[in-house]
């Protein structure tokens, strides 16, 4: 049981670590990595706690949810990277411009 707690707490830590990097880091590739770390942390919390069943057989529902989540995260990462490459070829920049487009 304690393993569940350790790994779920790791998930919480990863989420906050990713959030910090998402805000602080300027390079877009780094922001995309940070979002992936955030979702991994949440998945760990979601499916990690599924292992705390009394019978020992883990709850399959959160596991299926995490499978869905992983696929969604891959899709989002692919789109974000394509946007990054398009932005780079249009402007030469790999970070966001803060001037609100005016």
């Amino acid at each position: 049981m304690s393993s569940v707690l350790v790994l779920a707490l790791t998930g919480a830590g990863l989420t906050l670590l990713g959030l910090h990097a998402l805000i602080v880091k300027a390079h877009l590739l780094r922001k995309i990595l940070a979002l992936n770390v955030i979702s991994s942390g949440i998945f760990l919390l979601l499916a990690g706690l599924a292992a705390r069943t009394p019978g020992g057989e883990p709850d399959p529902v959160p596991q299926a949810m995490v499978l869905t989540g992983i696929v969604v995260a891959v899709a989002a990462t692919a789109l974000a990277l394509a946007l990054l490459l398009a932005l780079r070829s249009a402007t030469g920049r790999t970070r966001l411009d803060d001037d609100n487009g005016q």
Binding site: S3, L7, L33, A47, G48, A51, E57, V66, L67, V74
Partner: peptide
């Protein structure tokens, strides 16, 4: 965590495909 299904998806998708996409970019 006895989540073999997720492990079987995490390694090829989370690490593999995402990693390949990141490296290609």
């Amino acid at each position: 965590l006895d989540a073999i299904d997720i492990a079987l998806a995490e390694i090829p998708l989370g690490a593999g495909v995402t990693g390949a996409l990141l490296l290609a970019a």
